[in-house]
Design a protein around this nucleic acid. Sequence first.
DNA 1: CGCGGACTTGAGCGAATTCAAGGACCGTGG
DNA 2: CCACGGTCCTTGAATTCGCTCAAGTCCGCG
Lengths: 282, 282
Amino acid sequence: MKIPLQLSFPLVIESSALRHCSGCSMRQICLPAGLNQHDMRRLDQIIVRKKIAKDSYLYRIGDKFTALYAVRIGHFKTYQENFIGNRQINGFQMSGDLLGMDAISNLLHQCDAVALDDSEVCVIPYSRLEALFTELPILMRHFHRIMSQEIIGEQNMIMILGNMYAEQRFAAFLINLSRRYATRGYSPIRFQLRMTREDIGNYLGLTMESISRMIAKLRKGRLIEIVQRDVEILDLTALNKLAAGIDIIETSPISICIKSAATEAADNYLLSQPVQQQHHLI
Amino acid sequence: MKIPLQLSFPLVIESSALRHCSGCSMRQICLPAGLNQHDMRRLDQIIVRKKIAKDSYLYRIGDKFTALYAVRIGHFKTYQENFIGNRQINGFQMSGDLLGMDAISNLLHQCDAVALDDSEVCVIPYSRLEALFTELPILMRHFHRIMSQEIIGEQNMIMILGNMYAEQRFAAFLINLSRRYATRGYSPIRFQLRMTREDIGNYLGLTMESISRMIAKLRKGRLIEIVQRDVEILDLTALNKLAAGIDIIETSPISICIKSAATEAADNYLLSQPVQQQHHLI
DNA sequence: CGCGGACTTGAGCGAATTCAAGGACCGTGG
DNA sequence: CCACGGTCCTTGAATTCGCTCAAGTCCGCG
């Protein structure tokens, strides 16, 4: 049987293995981490993939919860909305991250999830997943670790919003992205922001203008270089200290300098943090 | 066999049933919710109780994680600490609340948990609990709902810290306590604060002084009455609107009045929120 | 080339903080 | 019984960090 050329194309690039967890580059970060080939195939059987175009919704607040989603390609943001229409971005998700766990308790989605890029997700029907847990305890255990990690991520966010200055917040934000890209095999010092300044500000409890000012400050301090949305981290050590509240960038009339504090420990502290964060800072 | 009188006392008040989930007044809120008698007994078998004196630690940051804890009697606070020693309170836990879920992923506790009262907890060994999940899917499902609820609670906290004014934060705090006490069968309009103003401020990303000022403001507005730590909510409707950002208390030179906004919807919105929150606002 | 969205920068303002002083309450010990 | 010290809380005045408002720049795109 011959398949028309224009149809064969997607079939060719997505060979059998590539269409499944075992062929996915995120398998060590994502839900199937730790599963053997056989068990991974069990998980594969309940998953389908779905493309989400840039700026369109993966799900919306109030939607019925049927599945979790693992980001395969692209980026998302999730936000809540309060009664008077204010939005608060909860997180930015990238490949390997799991979305929708906040919907498990009420069976309704609590957030909007919007694609920042043209993206692709794995749809994981939740009832079937829970059924699998009974048969695959390793999968269950890893799922619990992922939910726990989500809680830790949000606690870090609470620390940032409750305790840190604008400068520290923004530094922590960059460090978080850096770590997460590193975990995924990308450069920790060169990456692209996928969100607007407005989104960053909203996420960090600041305004767009404040983000702009913080960028200017860190650039003048020669900690980072940012052109448009292309980020280069020039001094990760200093950035870590800044986020930790150990150093402060001082603005003088003539030049900007970094107060070099004694404690090298700050680096160790910040760098020793688990790298496998989900979509929150530090 | 005779038991000396002074030993018999605790044995008498804790009859067989009372020492177990089936005899616990929190069983519909806590982990065993939804289990039948038989399954509840299975859970009972892995649980032991433990008393924690006021101001002492249930666990500390870095402690090895072996068990989750369910509050039976009393109150706790949990806080993180950052590198330079700043603390951030993550939540206040009361009876029926589960502590320690953030430790599942790293097998190390991420917070300090301190008793605010003389308290008692149920110690739930985690490895045995996970083993039970395979046999009791209902228990597993409820556990997932609890973790999801924890995530929602923290997202609400993020909304509060990222988007709300001091006044709104404090109102949301009171409403949250009110709801949680109501769920537990206590008065939603009269209760005692178990924590200092400093703790409240820390939790809400404010200072003790600001909390004091917000109390004064709400008292003058006749929304609440607070003497020491005894709270009486005089106008829950107005408090809800305040937290939602619909009304604002206006301070005039002569008197204080509440701008009465049209939208009664605010009440419905706020009151329709799930009551079963864990230890976070709204 | 002109338009619009995203971003930057400056000036003034305001909410909450910091600093400071004082008050209320509680347990302890004389 | 009251004085004493400590902790917790309140209140006022000055300060500050980040916000609001406003103007202007940059860049991609039709």
